[in-house]
């Protein structure tokens, strides 16, 4: 059985631009081999009512953009959705990895062993955005690849969970799981790690966000 015969998730889809509907995006994603997506800061109030293929799930994902001191308050406010912080300066990254309840820290540019250790304790997953490889050219892309390579090193060393996403904002930005794994290979991620970053890690986050989950080790069956 191939590594790619599995259910994949993309947990960071931007609200779609140019009038592409969520329904259409969902069908296209299903065709590409995904079983679920999470939309960042969805404009639609009720994602359950969006028409989608059988067995396909659409989740809300909240991107928290607050000053480092306010992250905890925001996490309390939106506890039931998938929570993401976009990596930034060292203060922000630090506040993010130390915040209990955060799910994803997306592509932090300044990451070090201290932050990695904190992320291990709070089980914050490290996000890798292949969308930057796809859309950028030249020096910017070199920098992003560099960042991802170092982040991967820390993730391996401290056993952090990794999330691989393309951050698509239209139908044309969507890439199949195999393409994502190939892109992840550019900064040294193995195929198995890439598959886990699109399957195991998202499933783990979704399990945490399900209604039956109470806390680590306690769950309603």
């Amino acid at each position: 059985m191939s590594l790619f015969d599995a259910r994949f998730y993309d947990l960071a889809v931007h609200s779609l631009e140019n009038g592409d509907s969520t329904t259409r995006f969902a069908f296209e994603a299903k065709r590409y081999g995904y079983s679920g997506i999470a939309i960042i800061n969805p404009e639609l109030n009720n994602l359950d009512q969006v028409r989608k293929p059988d067995g396909f799930m659409i989740y809300p994902c909240i991107e928290i953009s607050a000053v480092p001191g306010k992250i905890r308050n925001e996490i309390k406010k939106y506890g039931s959705s998938i929570l993401m912080v976009r990596g930034g300066g060292e203060d922000l990254n630090r506040a993010a990895v130390e915040a209990e309840g955060l799910d994803i820290l997306m592509q932090p540019a300044k990451f070090n062993n201290v932050l990695a250790k904190a992320a291990e304790d709070t089980s914050v997953a490290l996000g890798f955005n292949t969308g930057t490889i796809i859309r950028m050219r030249g020096e910017v892309r070199v920098r992003e690849l560099r960042i991802m390579k170092t982040n991967l090193m820390y993730a391996r060393k401290y056993g952090l969970r990794m999330i691989l996403t393309g951050e698509p904002s239209s139908l044309y930005d969507l890439r199949s799981p195999r393409d994502m794994a190939a892109l992840a290979g550019l900064f040294g991620m193995t195929e198995k790690e890439a598959v886990d970053a699109m399957r195991m890690a998202p499933l783990e986050i979704l399990r945490k966000k399900s209604r039956d989950y109470i806390q680590e080790g306690v769950e309603i069956l």
Binding site: L171, S176, A182, L183
Partner: peptide, 23 residues
């Protein structure tokens, strides 16, 4: 093949029109 896949995935625009290649 993996490198080729990655290169094809990086094609986003042709003459300003959005394009994506699905292997």
């Amino acid at each position: 093949t993996i490198d080729t896949r990655a290169a094809l995935a990086c094609v986003t625009r042709v003459r300003g029109a959005r394009v994506s290649i699905f292997v």
